[in-house]
Nucleic acid binder design. Structure first.
Length: 824
RNA sequence: GCCCCGAUAGCCCAAUGGCAGAGGCAGAGGACUUAAAAUCCUCCCAGUGUGGGUUCGACCCCCACUCGGGGCACCA
């Protein structure tokens, strides 16, 4: 039982119940009223996939995003901080198959659960701007964008060997294959020859690469690096080789045209058409077919193994080296990839390790054409890849690598035998999926007209009801079973035609959702052009590094395409990016199977929302992983209660002028406001928390053993604490604000103006050293000059003693912090 | 194999090239209490992964290495 008169203890759950309905009323984070005079800022969290309730990862990401959004609101900005749901995708479909129900049912249930959790988690989202990508009102615009790309020739269909997940029974983009396995289910990915839709992202490879310069310093270097890697630009030359007994020559790609004289054989990708053709008229045709079968049977996993010995087959055909007329054996091998460059290479074993391995295995000649200090590759088995003087290379002899490259390219060009060329690792984006729960591709296949775009006024092409459809994966889209839906009249000739039955990769949905927020309910356009001009590009994007390549690259691509189509006046969607780390447990990622799963709902029930948010923010730098076994949510509760108690101790009246208050505490308050603000702006949220903690300690001390609870400076300090805490612990902050005599919402109280004269340091401790060893400390004015300081230091008794009889060579003075005397 | 990031107290983490410690966790002691919890106060603990270098001065810059994490990888 509480004794009457004893202070009530801080009730973490009570404050949540108390303030939620009040905030619903005030809606402090509604953005974008036309008459809002505040400057604008767009703070964006990556939207969630509604796979269930929110988990610890969401809790971290949204806590960090919220600090940023709430900070800018306090700083007087009109912040748009929206949320929506990335609601198409396989988990819903798999759940529907299991439960024999509709994927939408499962999806919307989860969205409702997540939405309620976000509200309770006190995310400062603008709830007027939500949408779900699985709503026809949204995916209509996926289809519209698809059609714009189609018209521009940026969406096209081609047949090729694609990544196929036997478990998901659908194709995958290159980006969704991780180490030869399906990103989602870890099944080994196989190859399958299919006709599929692609977006021509390769047309934008150079711009995707070059425009990253403008993101330098604004995005994590790691992400930029990963994108550069993924695009994989390489500069070299294409060289044409005549083939004996073939009319047309063959072009190869090389980054080292300078080593052309070192080519001793020629290799074509085993699975290329060229290989089949060359083998077709050679005596080894049967042998080649057998080899090709073997190659196809090898999974990507095996291909990735570095130890695997080189294999191949001599096709009994010859290529002619254009620079010296040498006959080069043509081999077929799987170490040359059919879909990179031209699928054929000149092999220079002395200076390329892979070629050397092959030459050693097949006993082919090796000729050194670049001089080096290293031992002969033919002997050591180690290729010499570096720079050096060219030898055995005709007109190139004596030149350096770069000189030789320039010269040979010029010579080849003159003789129309080759030219400079660029290649990319990036492939076009395969967007077809053979599954139900996605955006239907708005194309009609007509026997006479071919691929016909669904007229824009007929959008959206709505998904047919899943009732009666077999959603089980079987390699063709479930939509093919919706007979009534599939059979339509051709929009061009009116003859019977068929709808495309594939759905789009869900990464299409997320490649432009940040544009939809500006006008989420707009019916006749994907986004309002004026509103886009107002809000975009996104000022601050927050999300996990897991999307460093896929989502961010695709979004950048879409932005550039929409820019080129005249809809956007910018070319990069996200001005600044913050990647938060993961929440792990005992050093490893949480998972049910590992038995180290921490449930967010449990943590919230025990410690309350504020303490969990604080724990996430305080754990360390945001980009580092949070190990839940290293942090102390209980400690966070203690701190919040400590801060809360301060609000009950303030005895001065609301509106008390702080200027007559205790100077020391006032300085601490203004320093904290200054430093915490700076820390937030530089994403050092953990440091910002530390500054708040310091001020809490200082206020406690002032009340207990300083000027006392009635000092105006105490009120000023505690109000500042409430406002700073409102970024991180909104319930506690609101409760403090009320106890201090204010009306809600503290979120809109505004960041107090920092008084520069209070932040200015009054005196500085100057360290006085001899040979780097501290001999004395001086309290000096921060404005002191070097000369004054030096004089003061040398006059100090300790220095006089230390320097007695010493030979002074030099005095280094860095006012106001240091004097260092160098002696012999 | 190539590229990127990191290493500071028992633990998580701070420190414009200038006194290694802001904050927290854990621990110890004390005050309050009949007692405990809660609260408040005080204290303990490293010389910055290793080896060099630059500098009057290095956690910070440079080189080499060790360990840990991540990305790319038969891309010619």
């Amino acid at each position: 039982m509480q004794e009457p008169g004893t202070p009530v203890s801080y009730d973490v759950h009570g404050v949540q119940e108390k303030w939620l309905p009040v905030w619903d009323q005030i809606a402090p984070f509604r953005s974008g009223r036309a008459d809002d005079p505040r400057p604008k800022k767009y703070v964006l969290d990556m939207f969630p996939y509604p796979s269930g309730d929110l988990h610890m990862g969401h809790a971290e990401a949204y806590a960090l995003g919220d600090v940023i959004a709430r900070y800018w609101v306090q700083r007087g900005f009109n912040v748009m901080h929206p949320i929506a749901w990335d609601a198409f995708g396989l988990p819903a479909e798999n759940a529907a198959i299991k439960r024999n129900s509709d994927p939408g049912e499962w999806t919307y249930e989860n969205i409702a659960v997540q939405k309620a959790s976000m509200r309770r988690y006190a995310c400062s989202f603008d709830w007027d701007r939500t949408f779900n990508t699985c709503d026809p009102e949204y995916y209509k615009w996926n289809q519209w964008i698809f059609l714009q790309l189609f018209k521009k020739g940026l969406a096209y269909r081609k047949a090729s060997a694609v990544n196929w997940c036997p478990d998901c029974q659908t194709v995958l983009a290159n980006e969704q294959v991780v180490a030869g396995a399906c990103e989602r289910c870890d099944t080994i990915v196989t190859k399958k020859k299919l006709t599929q839709w692609y977006f021509k992202i390769t047309d934008y490879a150079d711009r995707l690469l070059d425009d990253m310069q403008s993101l330098e310093g604004q995005w994590p270097e790691k992400v930029l690096q990963m994108q550069r890697n993924w695009i994989g630009k390489s500069v070299g030359a294409e060289v044409t080789f005549e083939i004996e007994g073939r009319d047309k020559p063959v072009t190869i790609y090389t980054t080292r045209p300078d080593t052309l004289y070192g080519a001793t054989f020629f290799v074509v990708a085993a699975d290329s058409e060229l290989a089949a053709e060359l083998a077709g008229s050679s005596p080894v045709k049967a042998e080649f077919s057998k080899y090709l079968e073997e190659v196809k049977a090898i999974s990507d996993i095996e291909r990735l193994s570095l130890e695997r010995p080189k294999t191949g087959i001599f096709l009994q055909r010859y290529a002619i080296n254009p620079v010296n007329g040498e006959k080069l054996q043509i081999w077929a091998s799987d170490y040359v990839l059919s879909d990179y460059g031209t699928g054929a290479i000149m092999a220079v074993p002395a200076h390329d390790q892979r070629d050397l391995d092959f030459a050693k295995t097949m006993d082919l000649p090796i000729r050194t054409v670049v001089e080096s200090d290293l031992e002969d590759p033919a002997v050591t088995g180690i290729a010499t890849p570096g720079d050096g003087k060219l030898i055995n290379s005709g007109s190139l002899n004596g030149l350096s690598k770069s000189e030789a490259i320039n010269k040979i390219i010029a010579e080849l060009k003159e003789q129309k035998l080759g030219e400079a060329a660029t290649n990319y690792r990036l492939r076009d984006w395969l967007i077809s999926r053979q599954r139900y729960w996605g955006t239907p591709i708005p194309i009609i296949h007509c026997e006479s007209c071919g691929e016909v775009a669904v007229p824009e006024d007929q959008l959206p092409v709505k998904l047919p009801s899943s009732a009666g459809l077999d959603l089980k994966p079987k390699g063709i889209s479930p939509l093919a079973g919706a007979t009534d839906w599939v059979n339509v009249a051709c929009p061009q000739c009116g003859k019977p035609a068929l709808r495309d039955t594939d759905t789009m990769d869900t990464f299409v949905d997320s490649s432009w959702y940040f544009l939809r927020y500006v006008s989420p309910k707009l019916e006749d356009r994907a986004f309002d052009l004026e509103a886009v001009k107002t809000w975009l590009p996104v000022d601050q994007y927050v999300g996990g590094v897991t999307h460093a390549i896929l989502h961010l690259l695709y979004s950048r691509f879409f932005t550039k395409v929409l820019h080129d189509l005249g809809y956007l006046d910018f070319t990069e969607p996200f001005a600044r990016l913050l990647n938060q780390g993961m929440v792990v447990m005992d050093g490893s990622a949480m998972s049910k199977s590992r038995g180290n799963l921490v449930r967010l709902s449990d943590e919230l029930n025990v410690h309350g929302v504020d303490a969990i948010r604080l724990t996430m923010v305080f754990a360390g730098p945001p980009e580092d992983d949070v190990d839940w076994s290293d942090v102390s949510p209980a400690g966070s509760v203690k701190f919040l209660a400590r801060a809360w108690r301060l609000s009950g101790d303030v005895t001065s009246a609301v509106g008390t002028d702080p200027s007559t208050g205790d100077l020391e505490l006032r300085r601490a308050t203004h320093k904290a406001l200054h430093d915490a603000g700076f820390a937030v702006e530089s994403f050092r949220f953990n440091v910002a928390v530390a500054r708040i903690m310091e001020l809490v300690n200082a206020a406690r001390k002032a009340i207990d053993s300083g000027p006392g609870s009635n000092d105006p400076a105490v009120r000023e300090a505690v109000e500042a604490i409430a406002i700073m805490l409102s970024l991180i612990a909104p319930y506690t902050a609101e409760e403090m604000w009320e106890r201090l005599g204010h009306k809600p919402a503290v979120a809109l109280a505004g960041w107090p103006t920092v008084d520069p004269s209070l932040v200015k340091v009054q005196s500085v401790t100057c360290v006085v050293q001899v040979l780097g060893k501290i001999k004395a400390r001086l309290e000096v004015d921060p404005e002191i000059t070097d000369a004054e300081l030096e004089k003061m230091a040398l006059a100090d008794p300790a220095m006089v003693e230390a320097l007695a009889g010493a030979n002074i060579i030099k005095i280094i003075t860095r006012a106001p912090k240091l004097v260092n005397v160098v002696t012999t």
